[in-house]
């Protein structure tokens, strides 16, 4: 067994210094050492997206990284994003629209949604479905999640006073509905 290595990482705004085994994944470090169990493990091979966290603001698979690789960087997990209210509107719409069942995929979905909506303000449904291509959900069939992300985007646009493309498109579609 190899000896432990020091890591210094800022997790959800808190400076953490710890000694970890080199083979400890970032996900195991967050879950087992820091008790941040909102980050889930569904495949441990970078496929399902249940373990997504933000590393220096970018979504990464915590199952694919070693904790030591996060040294000197900042990590945000679903717990931190919740407490800072950065994703409060997404969470609220997910709740109202029932965009989760068992909730095991949910943290990863929220991280993806958060990153996606920060880059794309007015997404189409196809773009949202595309953005979810690294997130498995076995329960919902995805539609409610797509609805919730679209609804969050609309809500943000409304609050910013921007008319949404999708709304305009839907309107013109309705006007020329074929008989």
């Amino acid at each position: 067994m190899s000896s432990r290595i020091a890591v210094a990482v800022t997790v959800n705004g808190q400076a953490i210094s710890a000694f970890v085994e080199p083979r400890t994944s970032l996900a195991d470090f967050l879950r087992n050492d820091l008790g941040l169990t909102g980050t889930h493990l569904g495949c441990e091979m970078g496929v399902c997206g249940a373990c997504l966290v933000l590393l220096d603001g970018k979504a990464v698979h915590a199952c694919l990284m070693y904790a030591v690789q996060a040294d000197g960087q900042t990590v945000q997990t679903v717990e931190g994003l919740s407490e800072s209210r950065a994703i409060a509107d997404i969470q609220q719409v997910f709740h109202e629209r029932n965009a989760l069942q068992c909730g095991f995929c949910t943290s990863g979905m929220l991280v993806t949604a958060h990153e996606f909506l920060s880059k794309c303000q007015d997404p189409s449904r196809a773009e949202i479905r595309d953005a979810l291509s690294g997130n498995y959900c076995r329960c919902t069939g995805y539609e409610a999640i797509v609805d919730a992300i679209a609804e969050t985007a609309r809500g943000r646009a409304d609050r910013a006073g921007i008319p949404s493309q999708a709304e305009q498109a839907a309107k013109s579609d309705a006007e020329e509905t074929p008989s």
Partner: peptide, 19 residues
């Protein structure tokens, strides 16, 4: 009605056996 217990899961406060 929306599921009251879903709020916990949305905040990453689920308690699965895995956890």
């Amino acid at each position: 009605v929306s599921r009251p217990n879903a709020k916990r899961l949305l905040a990453g406060r689920g308690r699965y056996v895995t956890d």
